[in-house]
Simulated assay, not measured.
Amino acid sequence: MTVILVRHGRSTANTSGLLAGRTPGVGLDDRGRNQAEDLPRRLESVVEDLTAIVRSPLQRCGETLEPLVAVRPDLTCVTEPGLEEVDYGEWSNRKIVDLLKEPLWKVVQQQPSAAVFPGGEGLLDVSRRATTAIRALDRIHGGPDGNGVWLACSHGDVIKSVLADALGMHLDQFQRIVVDPGSISVIQYSPSRPYVHTVNNGGVLNLPRPTKQSGATVGGSTGQ
């Protein structure tokens, strides 16, 4: 079972240096719309194989997927609350340059598992709900033979937490992962362990062929 994780395209909040969080009305900027229009081309090798398209309920994720859904109108784009952006509480819609002065900023950077946003949620809770949602959806959309490919569109910290889980990393290390707007990351879930194939891909996706082997290839991938 393989999930393609897409971070939404660049948003107006990204451009303005704001931490949007769940603030309503935050859509894509011009570059973000171009990234959305280009997504079907970047996913051309797998578009026809997709078994499902799932997204965060927020506007910027919906706008990112509109061109892809137009190519696969037979697939209903389903919203999943577990993939929603972090609830940053009182930090929402504030300038990041101002948040740098907050004592909590160092905790977010150095020990994110202990970070709880005032009036919002903790990053540990984000990790738990996002990874639970992804793994549950993967069991549904993986297909009868376990070789299904599906897509989920979400947000930077949410995707980073899912990747950290798949990599076997403690959440306190997840700030080492970079997930840019419009980027693609890929995880294959197998009975033995997750395999992370792609992180922060800004180009065309070349998805590896599904494998039924029970472990990693000795000596490394053959590149097929």
Score class of each variant (00 low, 15 high):
residue 38 D to R: 11
residue 38 D to V: 00
residue 42 R to M: 07
residue 42 R to D: 09
residue 44 E to S: 15
residue 45 S to A: 15
residue 45 S to V: 06
residue 47 V to K: 10
residue 49 D to V: 00
residue 50 L to M: 04
residue 50 L to P: 01
residue 50 L to G: 04
residue 51 T to N: 09
residue 51 T to R: 12
residue 51 T to G: 14
residue 53 I to H: 04
residue 53 I to N: 05
residue 54 V to P: 06
residue 54 V to T: 13
residue 54 V to F: 10
residue 55 R to F: 00
residue 56 S to M: 11
residue 57 P to L: 10
residue 58 L to I: 09
residue 58 L to V: 09
residue 60 R to P: 07
residue 61 C to S: 10
residue 63 E to Q: 15
residue 63 E to R: 10
residue 64 T to E: 12
residue 64 T to Y: 04
residue 64 T to S: 14
residue 65 L to Q: 10
residue 65 L to E: 13
residue 65 L to G: 07
residue 65 L to F: 10
residue 67 P to T: 08
residue 68 L to F: 10
residue 68 L to V: 11
residue 69 V to T: 14
residue 70 A to T: 10
residue 70 A to H: 09
residue 70 A to N: 12
residue 71 V to L: 09
residue 71 V to Q: 15
residue 72 R to E: 11
residue 72 R to M: 08
residue 73 P to T: 01
residue 73 P to N: 08
residue 73 P to L: 07
residue 74 D to I: 02
residue 75 L to A: 08
residue 75 L to G: 03
residue 75 L to V: 04
residue 75 L to F: 08
residue 76 T to I: 09
residue 76 T to L: 13
residue 76 T to V: 14
residue 77 C to A: 14
residue 79 T to D: 15
residue 80 E to N: 09
residue 81 P to I: 05
residue 81 P to G: 08
residue 82 G to T: 09
residue 82 G to W: 07
residue 83 L to E: 06
residue 83 L to C: 05
residue 83 L to G: 05
residue 84 E to W: 05
residue 85 E to P: 01
residue 86 V to L: 04
residue 87 D to G: 01
residue 88 Y to R: 02
residue 89 G to V: 01
residue 89 G to Q: 01
residue 89 G to E: 02
residue 90 E to A: 11
residue 90 E to G: 02
residue 92 S to W: 00
residue 92 S to Q: 09
residue 93 N to F: 02
residue 93 N to A: 07
residue 95 K to E: 14
residue 95 K to A: 15
residue 95 K to I: 00
residue 96 I to G: 04
residue 96 I to T: 07
residue 97 V to C: 12
residue 98 D to F: 02
residue 98 D to G: 03
residue 100 L to W: 12
residue 100 L to A: 11
residue 101 K to H: 09
residue 102 E to L: 00
residue 103 P to T: 02
residue 103 P to N: 06
residue 104 L to T: 03
residue 105 W to P: 01
residue 107 V to K: 02
residue 107 V to D: 03
residue 108 V to W: 12
residue 108 V to F: 13
residue 109 Q to D: 06
residue 109 Q to C: 08
residue 109 Q to I: 10
residue 110 Q to T: 13
residue 110 Q to D: 15
residue 111 Q to R: 14
residue 111 Q to V: 04
residue 111 Q to G: 00
residue 112 P to V: 09
residue 112 P to S: 11
residue 112 P to E: 10
residue 113 S to G: 06
residue 114 A to C: 08
residue 114 A to D: 13
residue 114 A to I: 00
residue 115 A to R: 02
residue 115 A to C: 12
residue 116 V to Q: 06
residue 116 V to C: 09
residue 116 V to H: 09
residue 117 F to E: 01
residue 119 G to I: 03
residue 121 E to R: 01
residue 122 G to A: 04
residue 122 G to R: 02
residue 122 G to S: 13
residue 124 L to H: 12
residue 124 L to T: 07
residue 125 D to A: 15
residue 127 S to V: 00
residue 127 S to R: 15
residue 129 R to G: 06
residue 130 A to R: 05
residue 130 A to Y: 06
residue 131 T to K: 03
residue 131 T to Y: 03
residue 132 T to H: 14
residue 132 T to D: 15
